[in-house]
């Protein structure tokens, strides 16, 4: 079995799904989850290439992506909670004003 192409293909499909999710959903949490899906698909591609070339670097990048994703989620969800407290909504279309 070709070790890289199927995984990268899957990665591309998942990424596209994530992109479409980001663009089509209006709920901030949903957008966030779609972004996580995109990150994850990129991770999959990294691991696939890491396996392809027999080098650990790809996996380490995934490791750091996970760390960044964790921080992003922590801060992002904190933001969403704060916004929800003031706006009573998690719809990003309700957040089109600069002033609160």
């Amino acid at each position: 079995m070709n070790t890289v192409a199927p995984f990268v293909l899957l990665s591309a499909i998942l990424f596209t799904i994530g992109v479409i999710g980001v663009l089509l959903r209006r709920n901030a949490i949903m957008i966030f989850m779609s972004i996580e899906l995109m990150l994850n698909s990129a991770n999959l591609a990294f691991v696939a290439f890491s396996n392809q070339w027999g080098k650990l670097d790809g996996q380490l990048i995934v490791f750091f992506v996970m760390a960044v994703a964790a921080t992003e989620v922590a801060v992002g969800l904190a933001l969403i909670v704060t916004i929800f407290h003031t706006k009573k909504s998690t719809d990003v279309d309700d957040l089109s004003q600069m002033k609160g």
Binding site: V19, V22, L23, L24, R26, I31, V92, D93, L95, S96, Q97, M98
Partner: peptide
């Protein structure tokens, strides 16, 4: 500049 995150995202895409 609609303020709509999704349209920004679309432009980015």
């Amino acid at each position: 500049q609609t303020g709509l995150v999704r349209s920004y995202g679309l432009m980015m895409l």
